[in-house]
């Protein structure tokens, strides 16, 4: 138990360090690559927390597809973030610290990490774990909950993905054929 907690906390510290690096870096190309590392580290964290399915998805989606999409975007929009020597911005830091302080105050009410008696563990989860083998005979409970018990929810998720593809197709799908619309600024 102790070992798992230690791995968990050290991966989280890695993630915190990576997020600070993401904040500070100005080169967008490097930022996207660091974001890929962030996703891969979070996939390992999901694995430590016994969520193999989630780790799978995060590794393929976060470190694979979204990194590629961001790189494709950067190839169009340029890789440098504009660096203007502006004065230290107080307002965002203030907002973030106040929100963070409120959330930290709320930690006191959270259940202890990893305890089997937590509220999340005592309502529907035992029902799924006990009845899923009887009712669906599928060993992977995640699949049976995803596809059978919460099938309507998953239908919604699939429609969301389809709609996102549709939206992107409408926004950037076909190149406009009107040459008059091409400003000189579009070639850089």
């Amino acid at each position: 138990m102790v070992l798992e907690h230690l791995i968990d906390i050290s991966l989280l510290v890695f993630l915190a360090v990576i997020s600070v690096a993401l904040l500070r870096i100005k080169d967008l190309f490097a930022a996207v690559m660091i974001f890929g590392i962030y996703s891969l580290t979070s996939a390992s964290l999901f694995m430590v927390l016994a969520a193999a399915d989630v780790a799978f998805t995060e590794a393929a989606v976060g470190a694979g597809i979204s990194t590629i999409l961001m790189l494709a975007t950067l190839s169009i929009t340029g890789r440098e973030e504009k660096t203007i020597e502006r004065k230290f911005k107080l307002l965002p830091l203030l907002i973030v610290s106040i929100t963070g302080a409120v959330l930290l105050y709320g930690i006191r009410d959270l259940p202890p990490f990893g305890d089997a008696g937590n509220p999340a563990q005592v309502h529907v989860a035992p029902r799924y774990i006990e009845q899923s083998p009887v009712e669906t005979d599928v060993p992977n409970i995640v699949t049976s909950v995803l596809a059978s018990y919460r099938g309507f929810d998953t239908l919604g998720e699939v429609v969301v993905i389809f709609t996102a593809g549709l939206g992107v197709a409408l926004i950037i799908g076909r190149r406009r054929r009107l040459p008059s619309k091409k400003e000189a600024s579009s070639h850089e």
Partner: peptide, 11 residues
Amino acid sequence: GYIDGGAGPVL
């Protein structure tokens, strides 16, 4: 969702 010593949810 994590429980100390709990296996992944594959029976």
